[in-house]
Design a binder for these strands. Structure first.
Lengths: 113, 113
DNA sequence: CTGATATATTCGCATATGCGAATATATCTT
DNA sequence: AAGATATATTCGCATATGCGAATATATCAG
């Protein structure tokens, strides 16, 4: 009785999405979009605790959103797939539109008060 | 001392993404992409508990990913922004590529064993 | 091998999330 | 108003997630 393949894909799809559900991880992905960076650089750039950076990177790595390349004592992380940034940009656009709609609504309501 | 606007946007961006981080909610969004549906229809289509459906819809509504329209005793939900589907499709593509890479790797390793 | 630096993992703990059952609310019909 | 149906909310509870501190591991220099 294997759980339906479709359900399994749904779970994996959600796992990829949930990698994006944290502000720090989104910031990491955008930072890597500028170019590869090692853990220390990311830690300083995003003002995170080193353990926190490492844990977030593990989550992104496990879901194949980032790749690593060792250079001596440093480990450089880079984006594994640019489409992640495209998706993030689309969703940021969705957010912007939603906020715009709410703002307009708020203004209309304010005028009538 | 308002917390930086940038940080607040990051949190909202993550909130939108985290709405996608559940298989049931992803299924709801794809179902609504086919056309508006009421809560009962979604509940049956996705084989969910009615309370569960309602709670998921509230999460999507709060983040402005879906809209509602009342029709008598029914409430019809629809997609608020098609870009959500575009983003989901992109991320599904990312997942597919990642699985493909792993599969290839697994095959190579199997041959060598 | 030893010390220094970079990165990863583990451990508690606090908070967040998802669920079904039960209950509340809203709308329509009669 | 009363019953029927649709939807939303609340309540416990179980599991998941994020965090900093501490610790472990890996790599390099000497």
């Amino acid at each position: 009785m294997e759980p339906s393949l479709e359900a399994e894909i749904g779970r994996l799809h959600a796992a990829v999405c949930s990698a994006l559900s944290d502000p720090k991880r989104i910031a990491i992905l955008y930072a890597l979009h500028e170019g590869p960076k090692n853990v220390t650089e990311l830690t300083e750039l995003l003002e995170l605790n080193q353990a926190t950076t490492s844990r977030h990177l593990k989550i992104l790595r496990d879901r194949s959103l980032v790749e690593t390349q060792r250079d001596g004592v440093h480990i450089y992380y880079s984006l594994a797939d640019e489409r992640v940034i495209e998706a993030l940009d689309l969703l940021r656009g969705v957010l912007a539109s939603a906020l715009e709609r709410r703002k307009t609504l708020a203004e209309v309501m304010t005028v009538r008060t």
